[in-house]
């Protein structure tokens, strides 16, 4: 549904997005990750036709966003960063306007509005003007506007920003639910969200694509991959570690913390993870070490994220120039 090839954006002499390509099909949720200022919102603004491209090409459902903007724009719903809305309109008035401009009218319009209001739980604020809403509600109004016409493509810039935990959960469910029939792009800074809803992830750093793959593949890039967290009832960690490191399946056992009668360890597998957990457990049982905690930790996305993206604000400027 969405094809972006070699998209670039320069602001003056500064390159903010430097040659990014990707595609999103129906049934996919593409997660957009990257540090602040990486160019995520800028890329989304180009996809949605708000900013002109400096180079490259973007098509939505086959329509080039620069050559057939109106046709392309009919196909998507967009939640811009910070969910802008006409502050002096009521929620009902704003949704009515959004529906009209999407060429909905009569019963169709009423149904579409009712559906979006229900999905975003806006029943209680319909007659309130938008500038009197709380941030979370403003965000929900923006989201309601984006899904109003049930578009085949959704582009959401930080959709869970400012929502309470219940709403975050619901928003993720909603996105997952809708992803079956739509192509969706979401940007986010919440890495668990990526694991929860995305079928594919791209990471942008200083306008360059540094990763494009599944969340699973991303996890596997973690510096340590998976590891076993272990809390053993022992007063000293040295013998436990020595014993574990003798096992062929274990590469390293690391002390994480010492409490009064227990020690916490992280155990890293050597090569394949096959029978790694059971080998560790068997060895502990054999040596009669009691453990009160033992679980497998998956590769930490934030570690991968940190290792793939190094830019901070200052570096970003130099690197992009």
């Amino acid at each position: 549904m969405i094809e972006a090839s070699n998209v670039r954006k320069n602001f003056g002499a500064r390159t903010v997005v430097g040659g990014v390509s990707f595609s999103v099909g129906k049934g996919e949720v593409l997660g957009f990750l990257g540090p602040n200022g990486a160019g995520k919102s800028t890329t989304m603004r180009m996809i949605t036709g708000f900013l002109p491209l400096s180079a490259g090409k973007i098509t939505i459902g086959g329509y080039d966003i620069e050559e057939n903007p109106v046709e392309a724009k009919q196909l998507f719903g967009y939640l811009p960063e910070n969910a802008p809305a006409y502050q002096d309109m009521t929620v009902a008035g704003f949704l009515d306007f959004s529906a009209s401009i999407r060429r909905l009218s009569g019963k169709k319009k009423a149904d579409a509005i009712a559906r979006a209001v229900k999905l975003c739980h806006l029943e209680n604020v319909l007659q309130q003007t938008i500038d009197t809403l709380s941030k979370g509600y403003r965000h929900r109004v923006g989201f309601a506007q984006a899904i109003l016409h049930d578009p085949p493509v959704l582009i959401l810039d930080e959709p869970t920003d400012g929502l309470d935990p219940n709403q975050k959960h619901e928003m993720r469910e909603l996105i997952r639910e809708m992803s079956r029939t739509k192509a969706i792009i979401v940007s986010t800074h919440i890495l668990e969200e990526v694991e929860a809803i995305c079928t594919r992830v791209i990471i942008i750093d200083r306008g360059k694509l540094v990763f494009n793959g599944t969340p699973r593949e991303l996890q596997e890039k973690a510096p340590y991959g998976h590891r076993l967290r272990l809390t053993v009832c022992a007063s000293d960690d040295a013998p436990v570690r020595a014993m574990l490191e003798k096992l062929p399946q274990v590469r390293k056992a690391e002390l994480l913390g010492k409490q009064e009668k227990t020690v916490s360890l992280a155990v890293y597998p050597a090569g394949s993870e096959k029978d790694f957990v059971s080998a560790v457990k068997k060895a502990l049982d054999e040596h009669k070490w009691e453990f009160c905690e033992l679980y497998l930790e998956h590769g930490r996305l934030d570690e991968v994220f940190r290792s793939l993206t190094t830019s901070d604000a200052v570096e970003g400027k130099e690197g992009a120039a």
Binding site: F50, Y78, Y86
Partner: peptide, 14 residues
Amino acid sequence: RQGTLELLFTMPVS
């Protein structure tokens, strides 16, 4: 200022 320009120009309006 309100950022609604982004909204308006990403709606199917020429």
